[in-house]
């Protein structure tokens, strides 16, 4: 026991992200979080969509399901419902989750499955060479865009909260320690957890770069040190935890207010957390008390000779004509 982050590496796969890509940081954060939580590779399923982020599971030793563009959450839902004992993580890009998959994003909130969803947020569609993603702000012109972006950005944290995600956080791909801690919190959260991971694209996003986040352009005149644009919510005394339903609305409002911040002060950390809301698993268990003990994936369908054991008498009762 006691696996190390390196035990979650996949040596036979070359991670083909661009040099300096934030995806490496997320990969490291995942491997560290899994090791620190004492998880074993076979207990974890990482489900991803299309784009550079979609390759994340291939670089982590765990069950990996690299799916279709935008469909990360439906695949993850099917896996989690069939076997709720699995630790399921959905991984996707901003275009994947908030563009083509936005309908799934919103509806996932309604189910509150006990799993984690991490969005790689870099403002561009990298793998198709830099088009604007749904998190790129209005008027911004990253280098591959022929004209400034004509659409306003979606507020991913805000959308998660109003959609029913019961945990919403933001982290940063280059602050691996913060990211690792955030991933751990998300996995440990009882319910659907969302992490908006700021992940600079070194090739196509020349605006919100690593240097921009770390504030290389605004050095303290006295010390000469860059002043980071990111600040940690947990260091400001911000309390995202809903301990009683009576404070839920205020906590949501406070989180939404924080989610509006951008520019020279961008909050990272946990915005909202509520474990009072029943998870999908708990909702099913109310109808089917043995659900977790004998979930769909674990049911024995045939007897020792393979004959189906199911008794259809109940179904046939209402249909019999004698």
């Amino acid at each position: 026991m006691g696996l190390k982050p390196s035990d979650f590496r996949v040596p036979q796969v070359y991670a083909d992200w661009c040099p300096g890509c934030g995806d490496f940081g997320i990969m490291n954060g995942l491997q560290m979080a899994f090791a620190e939580l004492g998880l074993e590779p076979h207990q974890i399923v990482m489900v991803s969509g299309i784009g550079c982020s979609g390759k994340e599971p291939h670089n982590v030793k765990a069950y990996g399901v690299h799916t279709l563009h935008g469909r990360t959450l439906p695949f993850a839902m099917g896996i989690k419902v069939a076997n709720p004992r699995l630790e399921v993580l959905a991984i996707g890009g901003d275009g994947d989750g908030l563009g083509i998959g936005a309908g799934h994003f919103v509806n996932a909130g309604r189910k509150n499955l006990d799993m984690t969803y991490i969005i790689h947020n870099n403002g561009v569609y990298g793998l198709t060479k830099g088009q604007a993603s749904p998190t790129l702000r209005l008027g911004i012109q990253t280098k591959a865009l022929p004209k400034p972006n004509i659409n306003e950005a979606v507020n991913s944290i805000g959308l998660a909260i109003i959609s029913g995600f019961t945990f919403a956080a933001r982290s940063y791909a280059y602050d691996v320690r913060h990211l690792k801690e955030t991933i751990k919190k998300a996995i440990q959260h009882k319910g659907l957890a969302f992490i908006d991971c700021l992940q600079p694209c070194p090739t196509y996003n020349n605006i919100t770069t690593k240097d921009w986040y770390s504030g290389e352009d605004r050095k303290d005149p006295t010390t000469g040190k860059p002043q980071s644009r990111l600040y940690k919510l947990e260091e400001t005394g911000f309390d995202p935890n809903v301990r009683d339903w009576s404070e839920d609305f205020q906590k949501k409002i406070a989180a939404m207010d924080k989610a509006r911040e951008w520019g020279d002060a961008i909050p990272i950390g946990v915005f909202y957390k509520n474990e009072l809301e029943p998870t999908f698993q708990e909702r099913i268990s109310k109808r089917i008390p043995f659900y977790v003990d004998r979930p769909p994936a674990k049911q024995k369908l045939g007897d020792e000779n393979g004959f189906s054991k199911v008794d259809l008498t109940k179904f046939m009762k209402g249909l019999k004509t004698s």
Binding site: P74, A82, L86
Partner: peptide, 11 residues
């Protein structure tokens, strides 16, 4: 796609 996911998980 969720049916596919469930099938991969063994249901």
């Amino acid at each position: 796609n969720s049916a596919s996911g469930a099938a991969l998980a063994g249901a």
